[in-house]
């Protein structure tokens, strides 16, 4: 029962991480690559850490070893820091790319045209 839950979380997390890698190889310009990479890796890593936390709670329930509590809490800290910092880094990167003069590929309207 709990193995199926952990397996489902792992499959979803690994699938979305692979989708981010395929996305940055297939998309045409830097903004769509940022769009694919940031959201897919953040979502996939959330599910991977969810699998780890479920695994540590299950092992603590069986063995009563406090080392599993440490593993669960530190994995939760990883995903908290990643969710807080990953979109900010992507925003700074997209803003820097636009300020260094890269136009979006096939853009119909560019709101930042004369304001940089």
């Amino acid at each position: 029962m709990i193995e199926w839950l952990i397996g489902t979380f792992l499959v979803v997390g690994v699938f979305f991480n692979l989708l981010a890698s395929v996305g940055i190889l297939r998309f045409p310009d830097v903004y769509t690559r940022i769009h694919a990479a940031t959201k897919c890796t953040t979502f996939g890593t959330i599910f991977i850490v969810l699998a780890t936390v479920t695994y540590s709670i299950y092992n603590y329930w069986i063995q009563r070893d406090p080392a599993w509590v440490t593993i669960g809490i530190h994995s939760a800290l990883v995903v908290i820091f990643l969710v807080l910092t990953n979109p900010v880094g992507a925003h700074a990167l997209g803003r820097a790319a636009r300020k260094s003069g890269i136009r979006p590929y096939g853009a119909v309207i560019d709101e930042l045209e004369g304001r940089l």
């Binding site: 981010a20 890698s21 990479a37 990643l82």
Partner: peptide
């Protein structure tokens, strides 16, 4: 490199 960092953390 940014994608690589997040994947290495995972």
């Amino acid at each position: 490199v940014d994608t690589l960092n997040t994947l290495i953390v995972a």
